[in-house]
């Protein structure tokens, strides 16, 4: 009998391109002096934590690959190109070379389709992978030595409402878990989203000038802290219960469904998540958090 696969970790892994910019990896053209250390150190702690476990694949759900007709999956084994952030091209021009676990992507696609979701495999080799996927994967695994599965986010929150999208993402999460189990693989899941998401609309002359960085507004901060505390307390169901209010009142990037998908795939955790770091990026609130099924939080 084949070994049963499992989700070995789930991560809230936000994707501001500023983080990669400030890391100064060889792949990124612009260079920075410093910046957003609390978040980058958070990702450093995450990487150390993940280094303690063996895993085969990263599965990332990205708000920056937005599709209106269902959920799409990267379906080409190799992608190599230049990703230029359409919003922050001054910070992120990243040369990527990545591998996709197409078999697992197809498996999740098929499970989701079987559950009644609208799905599609993306098989165009000229396709450019979105920067949300790239940033979350790079910050989690800068060696790029693991294949990934890329999942689009659906625009249902705007077309219908957050509750409709949430119901869809709960199904997608369950489908993801079943497909991972059937694959025999050990997967780390990444929900690639910020928490509160109201940006500043101007940029300081030195972008990494941290004297200019702070949360956009107090309401956002209160909501971010409330959500983090619930996640740190193992209140996964409560997080889902308030997801619509949070999304609307904090202009949260959870409108892409990534966090709902992650919590569903983890079986709606009643155990604490580890907070590796929180920080703001151009006014938005971002937390790096890790759930380790079967283990207690370690911070």
């Amino acid at each position: 009998m084949a070994k049963k696969g499992e989700i070995v970790a789930g991560v809230l892994a936000p994707h501001p391109p500023h983080l990669v910019y400030a890391e100064n990896p060889d792949q990124n053209e612009p260079t920075a002096e410093c910046g957003w250390e609390t978040l980058r150190w958070g990702y450093e702690r995450l990487r150390k934590s993940l280094s303690e476990i063996d895993y085969d694949v990263l599965i990332v759900h990205s708000p920056h690959w937005r599709t209106q007709v269902g959920t799409h999956f990267l379906g080409v084994e190799k992608f190599k190109s230049l990703s230029v952030d359409p919003i922050f091209p001054n910070l992120f021009r990243f040369h990527y070379d990545l591998t996709v676990d197409v078999n697992l992507a197809q498996g999740i696609h098929d499970e989701a389709k079987g559950a009644g979701l609208v799905t599609e495999m993306m098989t165009n080799p000229d396709f450019r992978v979105d920067y949300g996927t790239i940033v979350s994967c790079h910050m989690t695994n800068p060696d790029w030595d693991k294949p990934l599965v890329g999942i689009s986010s659906n625009g249902g929150a705007r077309y219908f409402n957050m509750d409709v999208l949430g119901a869809t993402m709960l199904k997608l999460g369950e489908a993801t878990r079943k497909a991972v189990e059937a694959s025999g693989k050990r997967a780390v899941l990444l929900a690639s989203n910020s928490l509160s998401h109201r940006h500043f609309t101007t940029e300081s002359e030195v972008v990494e000038d941290m004297s200019k960085e702070h949360i956009n507004n107090h309401n956002q901060y209160l909501w971010d802290m409330r959500m983090i505390e619930m996640m740190r307390s193992g209140k996964g169901q409560q997080v889902l219960d308030v997801m619509t209010d949070f999304t609307e009142q904090a202009t949260a990037e959870t409108d892409g469904g990534s966090l709902t998908w992650l919590l569903s795939a983890l079986g709606v955790p009643d155990y604490p998540a580890t907070l590796h770091g929180y920080g703001t990026v151009i006014g938005t609130g971002n937390a790096v958090m890790e759930w380790r099924p079967g283990q207690e939080a370690r911070a």
Binding site: R66, T67, M122, T123, N124, D126, S152
Partner: peptide, 11 residues
């Protein structure tokens, strides 16, 4: 160019 959503239509 490939459209994010309608990628199946071609490049």
């Amino acid at each position: 160019h490939v459209d994010d959503q309608f990628h199946a239509l071609g490049s």
